[in-house]
Amino acid sequence: MDLWSVHLGRVPYREALDLQQRLRAARRHDLIPDTILTLEHDPVYTRGRRSDPAELPFGDAWYAEHGIDVVDVDRGGKVTYHGPGQLIAYPIVKIDDVMRFVGQLEDAMVAALREEGITKARGRAADGRDFTGVWVGDDKIGSIGLHISHGVTMHGLSINIDDTTLEPFTWIVPCGLGGVAMTSVERLTARRGRIDCVRKRVTHGLADALGERQRLVTRDRLEKALAAAPSTVV
């Protein structure tokens, strides 16, 4: 089976959320194959279902003044930040074992980071849901947050690539973990602009884990597939 891999470039969060929702409806009815979107976002904080107001201590208005939107979402997890210089991957795939899939995401992230020379990267889902993601020592470099409906995933993972992603994390309680520092590929390797290399490795690793063949698809091709779906489905 194919895994469609669609690179979107830089996309506002709400636009990507709408696309994910349309894709999940189509995937549920087997109108498209498993699909992974890769992209970067404009600056945004997203609040998952388990978020606490204290995780955004300065209030929505203060963050808006600093150019960061705040969006409530239906994924698991708590508050996190997305912005330019951070790799985002949203897999819209059918699964039957949530924790196995989380492990596959962690493994794909870890393998990609080790190719960058970050040999101490490791997934920590086994340590409890608050620690899901990828860590380097006590610092977190990658996050995972999912929502599953009718056996189809939405939302996904993020990896901090450039240091530009890090300061906004200091203005929140990231992932609900007080005192946790975030790190990035640039901080650990002194190399900037590695997002395309990491992106290609993550999508290739996930396709391998799912036993699927990665097929590069343009957004235009994807939109045509969605347009062909019955309006009552998408």
Rank of each mutant, 00 (worst) to 15 (best):
H29A: 15
D107T: 13
V180Q: 06
T153I: 06
S5P: 11
N160P: 06
G123D: 00
L37M: 11
N160W: 00
H150K: 14
P53I: 01
H150T: 05
R215Q: 15
T119E: 09
I141R: 02
A209I: 09
T164P: 12
T170N: 11
G48Q: 06
K120F: 08
A209D: 12
V136Y: 10
P43R: 10
G77A: 01
L17N: 07
R22E: 10
V110K: 07
D72Q: 01
A108W: 10
A207C: 08
V202N: 06
V73W: 03
C175H: 01
F101W: 04
P91G: 14
G128S: 05
H82L: 05
G77C: 00
S51I: 01
L210C: 09
G211C: 03
E65P: 14
D74F: 03
G176C: 00
R49I: 13
G211F: 03
I161Q: 00
G179W: 08
T80G: 02
E115R: 12
I95P: 04
T119Q: 11
G176E: 08
A64E: 10
G145W: 07
D34R: 07
R192A: 14
R50K: 13
R24V: 15
D220Q: 11
A126L: 12
E212Y: 14
F101Y: 12
G145R: 04
Q104C: 10
D107M: 07
R28C: 15
R75T: 01
P84W: 05
L226E: 07
A190F: 05
I159A: 05
V70Y: 03
V102M: 02
A26H: 13
R14D: 09
L146M: 10
I95M: 03
H204F: 13
G156L: 02
V198H: 00
D72C: 03
Y13P: 10
T153F: 11
R75Y: 09
G77L: 00
F101Q: 02
V110G: 02
T132H: 02
Q214P: 13
T218L: 11
D18A: 13
R191Y: 11
G83P: 02
G205Q: 10
G123H: 04
A112R: 03
A209P: 13
L188A: 00
V202R: 13
D2A: 14
P174H: 00
I172Q: 08
L37V: 04
S143H: 15
Y13E: 01
E40R: 05
R47P: 02
D163M: 02
G117E: 04
S143T: 14
V11W: 04
A61P: 03
T46G: 08
D69Q: 07
Q214E: 15
H150D: 15
Q20H: 11
V73L: 05
H7A: 15
L157V: 13
G85K: 03
H29I: 06
R129W: 11
D42Y: 14
Y63V: 01
G193A: 07
